[in-house]
């Protein structure tokens, strides 16, 4: 106690700051870092959840390298990322750009776009799953059949299933991205636009020379944010394909679903942990590359 009393006010402030900071630090260590460390350790072990853990060295990683399903899943994951991120970026910018110019019922329109983001992914996935069914229950196919057009196999297809699953995921994320974009657009000082208009510049030049360059931090944020989201996609896929998770023939299976399946259906914890470590590494790399791009501005 005497020790504390002898501290200067500044030092006391530091002690208190650390005391309060210790709570989230401890929380993070226990909830995040400890399990992460354990997962890395388990990835070098064999464990079926029931018996003892045995060390197996790099066996799980070698198995992963030689597993054709892993490479299929790897490609799927990047398909989600490479289709999902640019698509949602362009769509959300277009919506935000035009929504920004709408005065009539602006708040209501914004709410409509934000609504899907607030909806539970599970509920949304099941509704879309129903949309995609074949005649007589599926909404889309009933409409097609009503016009005498042949049905489309949305989910029961190795080529259509991935885009079909991705569509509601993109739609669900749009609301958030639109709001961020609109905030970014509003933050651009109007004086730039006034100066441009005085100079008689067209809308295309304004868009490409003023709006987009000044939105760069916003764009980078949305790209990083949605990339992480698409790399970790799980709930939409799982709920739309519960009968045959990630199917048909692994056509929609993302990495997280493979991890889940390995861990909680096959109870092969070591192998699942190895997949987790790989996913973690991918996420880390993608995020670091994108942050590097941010810093270069």
């Amino acid at each position: 106690m005497a020790l504390y009393r002898n501290l200067s006010i500044r030092q006391k402030q530091i002690v208190w700051a650390w005391t309060f900071l210790a709570v989230p630090v401890v929380f993070y260590v226990v909830i995040r870092f400890y399990p992460t460390g354990t997962a890395i350790m388990i990835s070098f072990q064999e464990w079926n959840l029931l018996g003892a853990r045995t060390w197996t060295g790099f066996d799980n990683y070698i198995k992963l390298w030689n597993d054709p399903v892993f490479w299929k899943v790897f490609r799927n994951t990047f398909a989600y990322l490479l289709i999902g991120t640019p698509l949602s970026l362009v769509l959300s910018f277009l919506i935000a750009y035009h929504l920004d110019q709408v005065r009539f019922m602006h708040g209501f329109m914004r709410m409509l776009y934000f609504l899907p983001f607030m909806t539970s992914a599970v509920a949304m996935a099941w509704v879309w799953r129903w949309f995609y069914q074949a005649v007589p229950i599926g909404l889309f196919n009933n409409i097609l059949a009503g016009f005498g057009i042949a049905q489309i196999e949305f989910l029961n297809s190795t080529t259509n299933a991935l885009p079909a699953v991705l569509a509601p995921a993109v739609w669900a994320g749009l609301g958030f991205q639109v709001i961020i974009f609109m905030a970014g657009i509003r933050a651009i000082p109007t004086s730039y636009y006034e100066a441009a208009r005085i100079d008689g510049v067209g809308w295309w030049t304004i868009l490409t020379q003023i709006t987009l360059p000044l939105l760069r931090p916003t764009i980078v944020f949305i790209v990083v944010f949605s990339s992480i989201g698409f790399l970790r996609i799980f709930d939409h896929v799982f709920n739309m394909t519960t009968n045959n998770p990630g199917g048909p023939l692994n056509a929609t299976k993302p990495m997280v679903l493979m991890i889940y399946d390995t861990a909680f259906n096959s109870f092969d914890m070591g192998y699942a942990a190895a997949q987790t470590v790989v996913l973690f590494t991918i996420l880390l790399c993608v995020s670091l590359i994108q942050l590097r791009l941010l810093r270069s501005t």
Partner: peptide, 20 residues
């Protein structure tokens, strides 16, 4: 040995004849 994986094998077996 692992019911869900063994089921998956048969699910994929029929899917291959059906889709591919």
């Amino acid at each position: 040995a692992n019911e869900s994986s063994q089921r998956q094998v048969l699910v994929d077996m029929v899917a291959r004849t059906d889709l591919e």
